[in-house]
Structure formats: structure tokens, C-alpha cells
């Protein structure tokens, strides 16, 4: 039904965020969005590459874009905002001929540009569309109150990412609303979670993530939906650390938005990988859904 899109899962997709990868594939398949794996893809360079060397960083990402170009596909989607930043930055850097020349020297085959890198969220909104997504809902998430947390780099810098409002993005809000969930206004949707400070400075992550969880709770969210593997890790895996450091007792599930979509689209439970999360969202989810159910019956 729609054009094929190359799929770049990123290293996290094979490791810490397998459930994001699996649920993304399952949701896209259900919605008829044809994701094609990129054979022999490699790391995007992540944060270490560009802190060391811009040419190397661009080359690592450009190699993947070049592979997509070889497949005859015009766009590549990735679930990971960090990969997305690197892929889009590589495209941007290589617009300068001098940079392109240096980068191409490092590549097996030169990359001539022309492959657009987008997020899975953007692909769903732009290639499938909210109306079609809404039409595909089988189990509406009625009664579920969810805060959408985009993370700090999903839409930033705006000139580079060129999608959604960088201070108040609405794409995930709209998608989960289409799923029937009640999206609560979450003012910190683009605030930093502490990112990779989880290893050297846990106190910073505890403070930043603690604030996110605190505000999410104060606006009445049952759970926080995320779109970034690193955010997910900080909010979910480190929630215990936050509680210990701040003396709080949060227990807020932090699923990927694709997992929640999977529930609404009746994707088989084993493809959604809820079991991989530290705080299993399913009890809260079932409670919210059955509550709404009971209310519907009562009325």
C-alpha cells in the first residue's frame, strides 16, 4: 500500500531496546508500512564518534545511507533519536563538497546523498497518516492516561530535524490519542532525562529523571510513553535509583509508544515484549482498560 522504507534499528534495537524494535516491526507490519532491513548495516557512530572526529562520524552514518541508496530506497526510518540525529547530521554535513570528499574517501562506495532519514514516529505520521492509524484500532486504549515523553533530541535542533514543534511536539500525543488513550498535557515532554550520565553521574540522572516522573505523576499520568531507548532506560531501569536518591516511591511504567500502539492494534502480546521492561505496564494497562470497559457497560 505504501512505498518501502529502509529500516535502521540501531545498536540498541538489538540489545537494550529489543522490545522497541520488535513492537515497531509488528506495528508497521499491521499498518501495512513495509520496512526493509538494510543488509550489513553498521553503527551510526553514536555520541563517541562525533565527539572525536566529525569526518569519521559522518562516514559511519553515511555508510548506512549509502547502503540504503544502493537498495533503491529513498528514505530510512529509525526508532532511535540518537541514530536519527547522526544520520541526519551526516546528510547535512555532506552537503558541503569538501566534507563529502573527505567522507567518501573513507567509504567503500561513495554516497551521493538523497536518502532521507526519519524517525519511526515521523514515518507513522507522514507515511501512514493519523486517519489510517485510527481506522486500524481494534482495542482502543480508552481510560488509559498517558504522558508522552519525546526526549530532548527527537526534535532538536529544529533546523536539522525539521519535524514537529521542538518545544511542544504533538506527533506522539496525536498518535496515542488516535489509539483512544487520554493524553495528559505533559509540560516536560522535551526535557533532558540525563542521558548517558546514568553511568558517571547518577545523581544528575536521579535529579532530572526524578523531576520528569514527579511532574508526570502530578498531571495524573498512568504511564509515560517514550520514543528513545536511552530515555526509556533512565526512566524505567533507574526508577529504583531515583526513588532511593530522592526518597520517593514512584512506580510508573515507561513503555515505548509502539508497544502501546501494538495493544490497540491487537498485536500478539509476545511480539510486544512488555516482559522486557522493569516495571511491567500490563497491570496498569489492564486495569485502565477494564475500568473503562466496566464504565461503558454500566452506562
Amino acid at each position: 500500500m505504501s512505498e518501502a522504507i529502509a529500516y535502521y534499528p540501531g545498536c540498541s534495537g538489538l540489545g537494550t531496546s529489543k522490545e522497541y524494535d520488535a513492537s515497531t516491526r509488528a506495528v508497521c507490519r499491521t499498518l501495512g508500512l513495509d520496512l526493509v532491513d538494510i543488509p550489513d548495516w553498521s553503527c551510526c557512530g553514536s555520541t563517541p564518534a562525533h565527539t572525536k572526529d566529525h569526518v569519521l562520524s559522518a562516514a559511519l552514518s553515511a555508510r548506512n545511507l549509502q547502503l540504503v541508496s544502493g537498495m533503491g530506497i529513498a528514505s530510512a526510518a529509525t526508532p532511535c533519536p540518537s541514530c536519527l540525529t547522526n544520520l541526519r547530521t551526516a546528510n547535512h554535513r555532506m552537503e558541503a563538497p569538501a566534507m563529502a570528499e573527505k567522507v567518501n574517501k573513507l567509504l567503500d562506495a561513495p554516497y551521493a546523498g538523497g536518502v532521507e532519514a526519519i524517525s519511526v514516529l515521523q514515518a507513522l505520521v507522514e507515511k501512514v497518516g493519523l486517519d489510517e492509524i485510527k481506522a486500524a484500532v481494534r482495542t482502543p486504549l480508552t481510560g488509559l492516561k498517558v504522558a508522552c515523553y519525546y526526549g530532548c533530541i527527537m526534535n532538536r535542533p529544529p533546523e536539522l530535524m525539521a519535524f514537529d514543534d521542538c518545544e511542544n511536539p504533538m506527533a506522539m500525543d496525536n498518535v496515542l490519542s488516535a489509539m483512544g488513550a487520554t493524553v495528559v498535557p505533559f509540560p516536560l515532554k522535551v526535557e533532558c532525562c540525563g542521558a548517558s550520565y546514568g553511568i558517571p553521574r547518577q545523581d544528575i540522572v536521579a535529579r532530572l529523571t526524578g523531576k520528569l516522573l514527579d511532574v508526570a505523576k502530578s498531571v495524573g499520568a498512568d504511564m509515560v510513553a517514550v520514543a528513545c531507548p536511552l530515555c526509556q532506560m533512565n526512566l524505567d531501569l533507574r526508577q529504583g535509583q531515583v526513588n532511593r536518591a530522592l526518597g520517593t516511591n514512584f512506580r510508573i511504567p515507561v513503555p515505548y509508544f509502539t508497544q502501546l500502539m501494538g495493544v490497540a492494534l491487537n498485536v500478539a502480546d509476545e511480539e510486544l515484549g512488555f516482559g522486557q521492561l522493569c516495571i511491567d505496564p500490563r497491570p496498569v494497562l489492564n486495569k485502565a482498560l477494564s475500568g473503562a470497559d466496566a464504565q461503558a457497560k454500566g452506562a
Partner: peptide, 9 residues
């Protein structure tokens, strides 16, 4: 400069 304003409680 102010970076952001958000409601809480």
C-alpha cells in the same frame, strides 16, 4: 533568559 515555564501543582 527563561528556558521554560510549566505548570505543577
Amino acid at each position: 533568559r527563561v528556558a521554560m515555564v510549566y505548570p505543577k501543582d
